[in-house]
Every structure is written in C-alpha cells, then in structure tokens.
Design a protein around this nucleic acid. Sequence first.
DNA 1: CGGTCTGGAG
DNA 2: CTCCAGACCG
Lengths: 368, 368
Amino acid sequence: MLEAKLEDAGILKKLIDAIKELVTDANFECSEEGITLQAMDNSHVALVAVKLVQSGFKKYRCDRPMPLGVNVGSLTKVLRCAKDDDTCTLRAADEADVLNLTYEPKNSDRVAAYDLKLMDIDSETLGIPKTSYEARVVLSSAEFLRIVRDLSQLGDSVRIEVSKEGVRFASDGEAANGSVLLKGQGPIGKVEQEKKEKKDDDEEGEDEDADGDKKKEKKTKVKKEKDGDEDVEMDDDEAADEDGEEEKEDDEEDDDDDEGSKKRKKKARLSKSSPKASKKAKTASSSKSKKGKSKADDDDDDKDAVLIQMNSHVSLTFSLKYLVNFSKSSNLTRKVELYMSNDVPLLVSYTFGEGYVRYYLAPKIGDD
Amino acid sequence: MLEAKLEDAGILKKLIDAIKELVTDANFECSEEGITLQAMDNSHVALVAVKLVQSGFKKYRCDRPMPLGVNVGSLTKVLRCAKDDDTCTLRAADEADVLNLTYEPKNSDRVAAYDLKLMDIDSETLGIPKTSYEARVVLSSAEFLRIVRDLSQLGDSVRIEVSKEGVRFASDGEAANGSVLLKGQGPIGKVEQEKKEKKDDDEEGEDEDADGDKKKEKKTKVKKEKDGDEDVEMDDDEAADEDGEEEKEDDEEDDDDDEGSKKRKKKARLSKSSPKASKKAKTASSSKSKKGKSKADDDDDDKDAVLIQMNSHVSLTFSLKYLVNFSKSSNLTRKVELYMSNDVPLLVSYTFGEGYVRYYLAPKIGDD
DNA sequence: CGGTCTGGAG
DNA sequence: CTCCAGACCG
C-alpha cells in the first residue's frame, strides 16, 4: 500500500512534463525510501533517472516495494487536472491496477480524485553509466537551457569542452557556427561531487562552493543513501578522503586550501543531514577569500556563477535534441550539474528539494 | 573590414524579425555611413528599405563599402541567440565569406560568437517608388498595427482614405465591413516632409535628405550614398503654391479627367523632383497655411495623437496581408508614418534612433 | 496562466 | 492543405 502526499502538485507536474517526451511508459518503483523511475528514452539513446525521496513528501508511507507501471502520457493528462499549489496525494493498494491521485487546494473544500490505470511494464534493468567523472560544471539551469536551445537552431550536435579556459559549447551548422564560452567564476578545481545538502528549496543542490583547486586528492563520492542509488562522484584518483566531506574550500582564488572549510555538505543530499549549518559555515570561510567568490557558497549565489571542476580536459559531442529535451527540467531548480568524462555518457543532473532528475546521454562517436 | 558594435542586440533582432517574412536573402550594404539593406519581398509586391546609420552604433568602422549577402532566415536564427540587451558586434573581413556576430551580456563572463555564412546575392537594383506624396499621416505604430490587424480579419484589403475629415481605413468582407476613422489632432496641413528635424530620438532618423530617387534608372546605387538614399518628401507641386487651400479634394471627385491633377501626381511618382529646395519652400508655405501643422513638427506629441497632412484627397486600396506584415516593426518605435499619393505605392516608414525601416507597397488597382 | 506560433498528423 | 497538439514567449 502506497500513500504519498506532496505539498505541491507542481513538482510532480513539472517532473512528468519534463520527461514525457522521452519516456512513454515507465515503472514508478515505490519503496519506503521514496519513489524512483528509471527508463531509457524511446530511442534507447538516453536514460532518465528520477527520484522523489521519502523526505520530500509531506507524508509518505509505502509498506512494501511496489512497481507502478504508468503510461506517462496518461499521467500527464491526469496531472494537468491539478493546480501547481494543490496538495497531491498518490495512493495505490497492493496489487492494485490503478493509481489514485487526489488533489486538494490548500484552502478549499474541493477534492478532486483521479484513478490512473496501471499497466505491467517490463523492468528492463538499466545500467547507470558511471559514477565518477573527469569534469563537473555547475551552471544556471536557465543558462544551460538557453545555450542548448540557441545552438540547436544552428546544428544537430554540440561539442562541450571543459578546459582551463572554461567550458565551451560549440555547434557547427549549415548556415552558421556558434560558440558559447563560460568562464567559470573562480579557479578551476578538481572534481568533487558532493552536491547534496538540501539548502532551501530550489536552490539546494548546488551550493557546492568552489573549492578552488585543491589538488585532486579529494574525490568525492556522493553516494549517499544506503542502498546505493547511483550517485555521482568524481573520480579523482587519489582523492578518496572520506566521502563525508568534500573539501570545498572557498577560495577559489588562491585557493588557500580549504583548511577546514570543507564541510560536509555532500551526503546531506539524500540523507537529510544538516543543511543550513554547513552552508553557513562555508559561506563565512569563503567570504574571507578574495572578493567575490562569496557567491560560491551562498547558495543563492548569483545565478550566473558557473562552477567548473576538472581533473583533465574533456571534449565530447552530444545530440542537441536530447539536451534541449533535458533542459525542460530547468523549471525544477535553478542549477544544473553536468558531469563528463571522455567517451562516456554525459550526466545532466537537476537536484531539487524533493529529489532529482538525471539524464544520461552517450556522446556522439566522431566527436573531436 | 567591418566592425560595428550595437549597444543592444534587440534593435537588430526586431529589425530582422520584422522583415524576415518579406525577404529571404538580401545584401547588407556596409559603408562608412552605416549599413543599408533594400529588397523586394518574395512576391515582388513590396519593397523593404532598412538603414542603420553609423551614428547609431556604439562603435562603427567600415574601411570600404562591402555588401554582405545574408540569408535572412539564417541571420534570424543567429540573432535569436542574443538577448535583447546583449552588446552585439558585427565583424566581417574584406572579402570574407562569413559575418561574425558576437554577443556579450553587459555583466557576465559569457561570450557567444557566431559565424554566419555569407552568400553572393545579385543586387537587383530596386527602384524606390517615389519621394514626394500627396498625403502624410503620422500615428501611433501600435494603433496602426491594431487597425490593420483588426481589419484583416474581415477582408483582404483596406482602403485608406485621407480627406479633410481625417484618415479612414475601411475594409469590406464577406461577413462584415469595417471602418476606422482617425480624426487627426489638429487642422490638416499640407504635406511637409521635413521630418528630418531631429525631433526626439526615435523620431528622426532620416536626415538623409531626400533626393529621392528619380526614375528607376538610378535604381540602386545604394552604394553611393549621397545620391542614392531614398528620402521621402512630399510632392506638393501645386500644393506648394496654392496649397494653402486644399481644394484638392474636389478633384478627385471628378478627377477622372482632371487631367492636370492626375498627371502631375503621376509624374511625381517617378520623377524625383527637386528635393531640398522644394521642401524648404513647401514647409514654409505649409506652415503658414493652417495652424495644424504645428503639431506636425512636434513629434513627441502624445502617442495617440494623429498627424495628418495632405495636399489633396487620396484614396488607395492595399493588401492587408502586407500591412499586417509591415506592422511587425511596431516594436521598433512608437510612431509610424504613412505617405500616400493616388496610384503610387504607399510608403510605411518606421524611424528609430539607429535608423529606419521603410516599406513600399503598390496599391491594388481596382481601388475605389 | 494565457496566448501565439511552429511542427506533426490526417 | 487543413486541423490539432505541443512548445515557447509574454
């Protein structure tokens, strides 16, 4: 038996809306930890992984693991019947053949209930590409959307290149070639992946601060939860310090190394961990560094700030069609994280208060 | 070598957006005076003339005249990649086969650069219809847009009639007929075209004076600046003299034979007539005529004010489809000027700080 | 949230 | 070629 109450139906609406063009049918795997969905897109080129953590719900109960096979198109129709700020409750009996969705405005006696027919869907087990990367870029989700949308007008694919210069998105087309270079806001550090703690609602996710460049020693593994969802982590060789913390220091400038600055933000992501506190700390430390980087930590850092971490230069080419599609998730959170390593699938991750949506896309082969 | 920096890419975006449905390919003629473009619409019914004056750029350099043949659709795509307030720089080397467009947000480390492929385009020399008119109407561009859009729902064409009563836009359709009458805000004066005085920024713009172009033989020489620009001026031949009174309306009444009247207007159309001198004279005379024109000059009149000047009654019928299309330029400036003479193409002119866009449209023959 | 425009399907 | 649906923009 499942009963999951979301404070705002909007989250679910945006989430499903973002993936509906990629996935037509999928199993919502419900367990006591939350609800996950993983699916290959219709053409089996991209992989979508969604998670709504139990803690993201106002109320959550799931007695036993159960897969709910839904037609995403049908679910979209049902979700359109909810207003963004309606409270939305999902219910399914064990072995049920319908998923019940109830919408209740926060101040009203109205109650709308829908029963979505379920279907049996083969759980094709999907291999999540990898969990450590040579480069990580965190940027405004709106900017990423803008870039891929712009470039998609010129050509079909984009070459994403992370170098000391920054991150460059370039596309060649019949009528014109285009290139967008983002400098990054501070020294380029090694990849670290803690992205987790929950900051405020939409922002969280990315407070990773810039840790300047520390050497690569710290790696970061994000892994969080116990069971291992796929977490992202950078592969920095030596790194490995305990995952708990990443050392994100602040200084991007001279990076003084993060002496104590690195706090533990990472794990927080799934586990709730202590959000605010850590963030605060970080902010302070960073502030001391040079001028501006303060932004790094403050989650509300200016939305234009771009964080770039890389262990080695990467250059990959991807289909813009998919990236544009992934970018529909921009309305879920203000930041997006790109994880790349040469010759392996790109991970585009949107983390928000209640969970995340991650997209994996294989690079085009002939990429330079 | 061309290097032209516009403070805001928005101007160019709106400009190109406005003409993209009329023109598919065109030469941007760059010279030290600025950039001009002249082209017939795809069906050769309308003519578009654009000018961006050198002084409208934040920085402008063009060592030698050069035509840049661009596909307007491609340019539109590239311009869509710019935000309205981005600084936009156009660059082209001599003999280059690409036009480089660089966009830089005013506060950011982002730099986007696009190379638009150029093409060779035959400079079909275009004959700018005429330079003097029997009637001039200046009205809010938004109002003009509204009128033609409204009427376009009823029928395919509109009869524009300028009389002592004001200016009337009328359309007959299957289901309904419609008519919009604008009174004009003051007495109707003679046409005067000095509009060149600089009025407020968005108004002036075309100081190039009119030398109109004479018969089509000059056709294009766009390059040559001086002689070529098309300038608008009214042809008040007779008007000038006695213009004081507008008895002209009567003529059209019986116009038919009005040998005299017709012909002269005819000729006006093709011949360029004497520019400056006449104009000056005219202006003076006109001013003395009724009082109305006073406002004429003050262009900044309230935006709803409609200025009407006419030497003789005019009544012409045009395709609404084109007028609606021309009206896309409404977002460039608050005022639009309509210049008309019986049986010659209408001139719809939008003048803004950096230059102007002018559209010429031949009247429908069977107009009443 | 609503309106307009573009793309896809019949 | 027209109509309907989806996406994008204001």
